[in-house]
Design a protein around this nucleic acid. Structure first.
Lengths: 146, 146
DNA sequence: CTCATGTCAGATCAACTGAAATGG
DNA sequence: CCCATTTCAGTTTATCTGACATGA
């Protein structure tokens, strides 16, 4: 009678956390195989989307910290995936653009992410996936970092 | 044509991660208000369930590291929520039991966790919650820490 | 003076690792 | 000798803070 369910296990928050851990492990492994990091992918996606932007703008678009953007772009630049040029009229800014190399890398990583979704969603029937995505989107909806 | 969906955003793994962040933030805040940590709750639940057990057994039951169990039990013992006695025939072991105080604290934290579920699941209609829990349980199912 | 930008060094926090001390 | 338990110190990894130099 008293409470019903007890413990964190069995609660929605617990299972969401487990699912996240599982998803994270899958992504980490596939990205590691591919020799990249999720940050790199996020940045390449945003750059392909936005065109040439400053690092600060990139950080805002991807919700990454400017310091992490700075570091990750260093790696991507070394690999020739992006180029940084200083802004003509505002010399504080590094204007970043994706390169042809970068687009190839992006396409490769897109496939990695697709494979990760497939692995992660494997326990759900095709019909369930739409409903799940709809619900989990609402549950994560208003989330912003502190 | 080419790929369809691009970017981590919009993918299932992304939204699960967002939902996890949201759930985590809710739990952290409510536990902080209550002056406790999720570890404490996990341990109290297990102790209430198992009765008197060694710290090592507790660690295995809760999937917490022995070292973290040791530290968290130190806090709980200071607050009078648990007692540690050395095992009569195996003097390596600390046999831990929940106290009356501990059971009161546990009941209090159970309510905290219930409130957290309510807040977290608020975007879902009552009927959806069962379906969501079923699916997310399957998605987190086989997960074990490395 | 103030604010924005890019960079770097370090704080943080949870989770985990390693080793020492004790004992079976 | 080998293994289990408890404890503590320290590593790890991603994220975030703070400070600094530059410049608008």
């Amino acid at each position: 009678m008293l409470g019903g369910m007890e413990g964190l296990e069995g609660r929605a928050t617990w299972w969401v956390s487990r699912a996240h851990l599982h998803a994270h492990a899958i992504l980490q492994e596939l990205f590691a195989e591919a020799g990249a990091r999720p940050y790199h992918y996020r940045l390449l996606v945003a750059l392909d989307d936005l065109g040439a932007v400053s690092q600060a703008a990139l950080g805002r678009a991807t919700e990454l910290d400017r310091s992490d953007v700075s570091v990750a772009l260093g790696v991507l630049a070394e690999r020739g995936c992006v180029v940084r040029e200083s802004h003509p009229s505002d010399r504080r800014q590094n204007v970043v653009s994706i390169t042809g190399e970068g687009r190839i890398e992006l396409a490769r990583l897109d496939e990695v992410v697709d494979r990760a979704q497939e692995l992660f969603l494997a326990p759900l029937a095709q019909g369930e996936r739409v409903a799940f995505l709809d619900m989990v989107t609402r549950l994560g909806g208003g989330q912003r970092r502190a």
